[in-house]
Computed example of a mutant assay.
Amino acid sequence: MAQGLDRRCCGCCRGWTVTARNSAAAHAAALRAGARRGLWRRLLAFLGLGGARVRRADAAAARWAHGAAGEETTARLLAQLEAAGWHVRHDLQVAGRRFNLDHVLTSPCGTALVVLDTKAWHRGRTTTLVGGRVHCGTDDRHDQVVKVAGYAEVVAAAVGLLPDQVWPLIVVHGSPIAGGRLEARVPGQRGVVHVLGPDWLVPTLAGAPKARDPRRAAQLAGRVDSVLLPYTERG
């Protein structure tokens, strides 16, 4: 389908209004607070004398905050799909797993899910396919493609779907995507991982379902809510 996902799908009901829980933003705040724990550290930080520990924490926190801003932007874009019958959830986890799922969408068809990972990459470097691997400029980022493909497989097993019923996607903020979208492959897996720029995200997803089944979509969304839990960071 033009600008759409090369997957099977069908249709759905009204989505739920959701507020994105942003664990990335919470982690950034925790890093900053941890580096300033204690009266003396807070005083030194206030005076700009926090030392290397505070500087490292602030640099790490800035990276997490940058990612959090990307996730919030993605959440705002995805909200447009709810009127078309998509059920949208943010910041989830599979019980017993340590990774968080940035965004999980139940398709209006009621037979498919989208596992979507948000990335914030260098805006001065173009994201391309080099030898079949995703690169941001000269940096090989294909490990991120492999990870989201793995997340999709875990979600499929947890929810009780076939692997090809869960679509792995990455949306990249900052770095322009060559051609607007890429189709990356992971060894040992049949499908592709779509790597999209923000402008392509909603049109690609909106073009995927070819039919609607509100009852079936609501049932699948209910399974998602019962199996995928709000993400909680472990110490």
Rank of each mutant, 00 (worst) to 15 (best):
G34H: 03
L201Y: 08
V172T: 14
L220P: 04
S23V: 11
E183A: 15
L49F: 09
A221Y: 11
G150F: 02
P176G: 11
A52H: 07
T126E: 11
G191M: 07
G4V: 05
T19P: 04
T204M: 15
A20N: 01
P163Q: 12
G180V: 06
G150E: 10
P230H: 07
L229V: 15
G85A: 01
R141A: 04
L5R: 00
L162H: 13
A221M: 01
L205K: 03
V186I: 08
A2I: 12
V224Y: 09
V134Y: 10
A152Q: 10
A218F: 06
V134M: 11
L220Y: 08
L201S: 02
G48F: 03
L44T: 00
V148T: 15
W121S: 03
A45I: 03
L105M: 06
E233M: 11
Y231T: 04
P176C: 09
R89H: 11
E153R: 14
G174T: 14
V145D: 08
R76E: 12
A156R: 10
P203N: 07
V154H: 04
R63I: 04
S226D: 12
G124R: 13
W121Y: 14
T19K: 13
G207D: 07
L182D: 09
L77W: 03
G110Q: 03
G70L: 05
T138I: 13
A149G: 10
H194E: 13
P209T: 08
R21A: 11
R133W: 02
R98W: 13
G160K: 06
C13G: 14
A75S: 09
G188E: 10
H173M: 09
A69H: 14
A157M: 07
S23N: 09
G179P: 12
G50W: 00
V186G: 10
R216K: 10
G188P: 14
K147R: 14
L169W: 04
A65E: 15
P168T: 13
D91G: 09
D225H: 12
V148L: 08
I170C: 02
F46P: 01
D117V: 11
P209H: 11
V171C: 12
L229P: 07
Q3G: 11
A152W: 05
A33H: 06
R234S: 11
T118W: 05
W64F: 12
R32I: 01
